[in-house]
């Protein structure tokens, strides 16, 4: 636990069976703000889960046994999740451009929706990536100011 009362730091083994635990933490943290709608919480849960999935995959590619680090920060107006891995990093602007959804060839691509979902299901996203790993920061606004991107 962090000494900062607004933040909680935790680590999970880089294994898929821990994704459900992370999603539970999103729900628990979000429920501290009673104005957040269930839909907003469900959306943010998907976004955080996608980021954590990418982190787990990054560790698998790098054959890295380290834990995934997650920081949850609750401020007066935002709920933030920061997911940090120690993989090889990636470059968002080099992500493959997929066919439009109404193009039948879109079915040839089973991957490639994760970052899109992170972007549209959170209010803000920042990705810092380098050869030593990636940190994805996701946040949603609290209170009655909620709006989906």
């Amino acid at each position: 636990m962090s000494s900062d009362p607004t933040s909680i730091d935790f680590e999970i083994p880089a294994r898929p069976e821990y994704l459900s635990l992370v999603r539970s933490l999103v729900v628990e943290a979000a429920e501290m703000d009673t104005h957040l709608s269930r839909e907003r919480v469900e959306d943010f849960k998907v976004a955080v889960s996608e980021a954590t999935t990418n982190a787990i995959e990054a560790h698998a590619r790098a054959c890295c046994d380290d834990s995934i680090r997650i920081r949850c920060t609750l401020t007066s107006d935002r709920l933030e999740f920061h997911i940090t891995d120690r993989g090889f990093g990636f470059y968002p602007d080099q992500i493959q451009v997929l066919p439009e959804p109404d193009d039948p060839s879109r079915l040839n691509y089973e991957r490639g929706l994760g970052i899109y979902l992170m972007r549209v299901l959170s209010d803000d996203i920042e990705i810092h990536s380098g050869p030593d790993g990636t940190e994805v920061s996701l946040s949603i606004r609290l209170s009655s100011n909620n709006s989906n991107a």
Partner: peptide, 19 residues
């Protein structure tokens, strides 16, 4: 209760195979 991009990918792959 929950599906993510991995699950959506499985659906897309299945649709491709069946069609």
């Amino acid at each position: 209760d929950f599906i993510d991009s991995t699950g959506l990918g499985v659906l897309m792959g299945a649709a491709k195979r069946v069609r």
